[in-house]
């Protein structure tokens, strides 16, 4: 079984799959539309005390802590 945790806890260099987003209506959809879809692989490229750089299907995004806490991923 995969352990579900917030994206912020994923160590640098690891890749996980998105399992859920607890973002409230607007944010969740916005994220999904940017490519953070269910089961999409996310790779954490940089993690700096809560600010992250992640890659999701070929695009890179900088995220702040607030968002990184809301994206739940499964370990894989």
């Amino acid at each position: 079984m995969c352990k579900v945790m917030p994206l912020i806890m994923v160590p640098e260099g690891k890749e996980c799959r998105i399992s859920d987003i607890h973002g409230g209506r607007g944010l969740t959809r916005h994220l999904t539309e940017m490519g953070f879809t269910y089961h999409a692989p996310v790779k954490v490229l940089r993690s700096e005390k809560g600010s992250l750089i992640v890659a999701v299907n070929g695009c890179k995004y900088a995220l702040s802590k607030g968002i990184a806490m809301k994206i739940m991923v499964g370990e894989c």
Binding site: H30, I53, Y61, G66, I67
Partner: peptide, 12 residues
């Protein structure tokens, strides 16, 4: 309040 969570694309 706190700054709103932020997400920004990093273009290649």
């Amino acid at each position: 309040g706190k700054p709103a969570p932020f997400i920004m694309e990093l273009p290649p």
